[in-house]
Design a protein around this nucleic acid. Structure first.
Lengths: 168, 168
DNA sequence: TTAAACTTTCAGTATGTTTTGAAAGTTTAA
DNA sequence: TTAAACTTTCAAAACATACTGAAAGTTTAA
């Protein structure tokens, strides 16, 4: 396979994965493009390569900056803004996990905590079932939350190394 | 908060979480409803409670069965089919992880493996960057894959217990 | 058999999300 | 200043996904 063809395939795959995980396709594709670009790119270049509109490119780039996945770069003597992606995979994974926790897990944990407090008749099967399910899910969610915390603080090698020592 | 109100809130929250994670809202809601129901429910009851159409209920129930999250139950002397959810949170988490790996991670791994094989000029920065990004992501994806494997085989207590011993 | 009870399908509709492109806004150099 | 270079916004259009409901299909009991 040619490099050019491979790049296209990578961008497509990353885009598809993104859309399956609630990140919009274009955002994932722009990210992929910057991941395989040795140099920072301009909005113009991104628009051309992915054949997307100026508006779309602009919004997507702003979103990616918001997610902490890419950064603006100013080149001396140039008016245009350049964008480049952090190429460290571990940082990317951490950044995405962090953002999603904040947006999705945290609010759910809050509701679950509230729902475990609901009181009722201990002999009512409806109450028993509700309570058991909510309590169990809450426990699981808290575990995930703690593990993520550890992940955010950890170095990549330490994290996976420890995990493998453990799991052989 | 009343039990009835709490149930509604649980169903809503679960539905929202589902839709943020690429599982459709109705599917997550039906699952939530069954999770807090001590008895198996009929299609009719589900339709009424969640105010969805017969067609939607039927498709969603089949999907949930496909995901291994709920099962049909036949009651002696009855024509109607009843549905109930596995209430074991650990099983649910495992089941969802298993399905998503099969549907999403596996195909991506296959492409990444292919892309790491692409050959090129070692001195070309474009090739270097492409290769580094793809190789790194491939490594990360493989790690995730292995960890999931361990999770599928593990008992809940052992899994989280080990993780915590490790992470203190 | 047959008809009532129940389940499944699917074309059309509704709803939600993403993208476009032109206009408005901002910055910079002369 | 002013005008060119560039960035941002947003209403409307395109696209994607989910849902409805009536019709077709299946099963069961008598």
């Amino acid at each position: 396979m040619e490099l050019a063809e491979a790049k296209v395939k990578f961008i497509e795959t990353w885009g598809k994965l993104g859309s399956e995980w609630g990140i919009n396709r274009t955002m994932a594709q722009v990210h992929a493009l910057l991941l395989v670009s040795p140099e920072a790119l301009t909005t113009e270049e991104i628009m051309e390569t992915l054949r997307i509109s100026r508006g779309n490119a602009n919004m997507t780039l702003r979103d990616l900056i918001g997610w902490g996945l890419i950064e603006k770069q100013h080149k001396a003597g140039e008016r245009k803004e350049y964008f480049y992606a952090d190429k460290d995979t571990w940082n990317i994974a951490r950044q995405v996990a962090k953002e999603r926790r904040k947006r999705e897990l945290d609010p759910v944990l809050k509701v679950l905590e509230e729902l475990t407090q609901v009181e009722g008749d201990q002999n009512d099967p409806a109450y028993q079932t509700f309570n058991k399910s909510v309590t169990d899910i809450n426990k699981l969610a808290k575990n995930v939350d703690k593990t993520l915390d550890t992940m955010f603080k950890a170095e990549e090698n330490w994290f996976w190394g420890s995990l493998f020592k453990l799991f052989k």
